[in-house]
Design a protein around this nucleic acid. Sequence first.
DNA 1: GTGAGCTTGTGCTTTCTTTCACAATCTCCA
DNA 2: TGGAGATTGTGAAAGAAAGCACAAGCTCAC
Lengths: 208, 208
Amino acid sequence: MPTGRAPEPTVLRLSIYLRCLRQVHAEGLDTISSAGIQERTGITAGQVRKDLSYFGEFGKPGLGYAVEPLLTRLSHIMQLDRPRKVVIVGAGNLGAALAGYQGLRSSIFSLVAAFDNNLSKIGRPLWDVEIKDVRELPRITQEQGVEIGIITTPAEAAQGVAELMAQGGIRSILNFSPTRIVSPQGTTIRNVDLMKELEVICFYLPKP
Amino acid sequence: MPTGRAPEPTVLRLSIYLRCLRQVHAEGLDTISSAGIQERTGITAGQVRKDLSYFGEFGKPGLGYAVEPLLTRLSHIMQLDRPRKVVIVGAGNLGAALAGYQGLRSSIFSLVAAFDNNLSKIGRPLWDVEIKDVRELPRITQEQGVEIGIITTPAEAAQGVAELMAQGGIRSILNFSPTRIVSPQGTTIRNVDLMKELEVICFYLPKP
DNA sequence: GTGAGCTTGTGCTTTCTTTCACAATCTCCA
DNA sequence: TGGAGATTGTGAAAGAAAGCACAAGCTCAC
């Protein structure tokens, strides 16, 4: 097991391995080799082995990896082995769509509230939660022990929301707004930028 | 100007520069330095200069970059200088949210249709387009010259949809379904994996 | 018990990115 | 016109990630 901590690209792939393992497990297989993972994920076998080796020795030579134990270990490493509460700020189209997402009603994630600053939305139901005033965010997230925040507001509001979240004890933020947020002290931010993806895809369109 | 083509990380940043430049332009500035871009985007000035240098010499020493010309040049490089037609397949929550996205009704992108395979959805309106039978996709995209496809179906359907898209002449695909798609010959795929983002964010939660 | 056959973990090599630093170039004001 | 000040473009160095190849280890059939 290497000494330093895993590089970011490895962490991104961990989530892919996890999905693969869940599927393999559902299919009833007990064991899978790095070559088998390559076949299902497209990630080369060598890469798989190197990635996993950052966290320990999980495989048996000649046999491969035992699916269930590896699933358990990886879930633990990814900190997906206990429930996490999530809030969404910005009850527009995207916010509403994400709020309805089944992945936020799983054994791991649960959506506890949605927030907006638009008075005509506040108080209304959104799927199975109620839209609350964003000014209540710090109090509510603190009280409920919310750890993850999702931002789906317009760009102008994003920085302020991130700060409210930090104030409310949220440590990890997923930002869908098309702007850079300067991380409040102690928080991690990941950006998902739909417009960027759309533009980048154009770059790769065949040149005339 | 370096000979080879730009590395992928550079292309991703190009889109960020573009957004920054649009904003700076809207503010009425004529000129911006790499340091100025760093201030607004967080990308280091040296990185900015190197990225841009892959495509030409756009700046003037002592002055910086002329905003409008650079905007034009970058738009051209990203192939964002002419309209692109887009279709969405999968009229669920996420598909519907994306279909309503203003960015798909801009001077560059226009949404021409949404598709689904669910009979109860086919024929219904979705914002300003109609939901059509996915089996009509190849014909319609071919006729209309659609270049970009967005997949928001469940995982099981994604591969088949990608193939229909390829058949309909689509060359670039944005895949939101939580699965790996094997690119049909001649198409580029970019994946946006929401569940993955959510899981990865957990990894970065402070360890207890 | 033993050997054939897989498959892992990992050091080494190669490739890809980022950072650094500075000569060259341009502007602008006196 | 000339010189101070700013800022670029880029080669060279450092750093990060991916690919490779193989010794070591495990299994299983006979």
